[in-house]
Design a protein around this nucleic acid. Structure first.
Lengths: 179, 179
DNA sequence: CATTTTTTTGCATTTTTATTCAAAGGTTCT
DNA sequence: AGAACCTTTGAATAAAAATGCAAAAAAATG
């Protein structure tokens, strides 16, 4: 986009898609919005005019949905990501006819820290397993309820750590559906 | 209903509403159902014939909803009831502008880590709230008794994190929170 | 039982949401 | 810059979901 175009975009308060998505999230968490037209109106108040078609796509990508509230109406909500994992796991469990061996939902890194999201209640067991493996690259772990924080040795790259965890937690690959 | 009628109902596998609702729940937790017609068909396979109108009402009462899955389609899910409480509480909280008792005493940063001091015993609840907000900038949290450690995504600056926490924890007024 | 009241359901229709298709605008090459 | 490509969007439309209303079924009552 040219400087010129950017200038006008700013002037006219036309926002980028990312900004619109954020605005949508904040609107639906702060107010009771019950359909896309209403959301359209709210966005318009903020000077952001989009069509219902776009909102439908936006809400789909944000995984927003509406649900019955207590007054006979509907409200948009953003379901917790853990629920989605649970739902998918449950489906898988039923399909496969076995309890999933899979405890790890995701692994993320930030500098020397690895954040491992687990199924609820499994963090302690997972941290224990990691500790027991005595990997010198992993200095220590702390489990919460569904999260393990692992502190990596300073010189360990994210790639190395990823590889390490893959070996340590081979089941980490089983969960096909990423939410 | 007469004994006689009940007998025939059983015979013909025509179920009560309650049974239908249960069947619906088990169908949508076991399979990937993406619209009401598909659900109708599944019920029909079980010998239970109802119209889309009825299913719409059933799903509303079960608080079932559909959500985008990874393949561009949709799946019905049953969001966790706790989330709904949270969502509604959050909305009300915003509406009333009423800050709950101050739980956050201070926030400090060290590189990619945020250290949040809370009133004693409140760390778990706070970490929970942070987790529920599903901020991509916050990779994970671990609560102690009066401290929450939150690991930030690498590219997040302290200023951004500060702003994020201000929005997330509006009660944390000491930091110039914007509510 | 017969009768009244309440609940549940289907039909028809409206309302809401999703998608197709084409076009506009941006990006990335050479 | 021009060409090939990708992303985003709106208009129109298709698809899906919600609902008003009346009838049927069930439950409650005398």
């Amino acid at each position: 986009m040219s400087k010129f175009a950017k200038y006008f975009k700013n002037l006219l308060a036309v926002k980028t898609k990312e900004e619109r998505l954020q605005l949508i999230v904040s609107i639906i968490t702060e107010q009771c919005i019950s359909n896309q037209r209403q959301l359209m109106d709210e966005l318009a108040k903020e000077g952001l005019e989009v069509t219902q078609a776009t909102l439908s796509r936006d809400l789909k990508s944000l995984k927003v949905t509406k649900i019955a509230n207590d007054n006979g109406g509907y409200v948009f909500i953003i379901p917790n990501i853990n629920d989605l994992h649970d739902t998918l796991l449950k489906k898988r469990q039923r399909r496969m006819g076995s309890a999933p061996t899979n405890r790890v939902l995701s692994i993320a890194f930030s500098r020397n820290i690895a954040i491992i999201k687990t199924r609820n209640g499994h963090a302690t067991a997972l941290a224990y397993d990691i500790d027991m493996s005595n990997q010198p690259e992993i200095l220590g772990t702390i489990p919460g309820a569904d999260t393990v924080i692992a502190v990596l040795r300073e010189d360990v790259t994210h790639e190395q750590a990823q590889e390490l965890f893959s070996q340590l937690l081979p089941q980490h690959k089983c969960l096909g559906a990423r939410v």
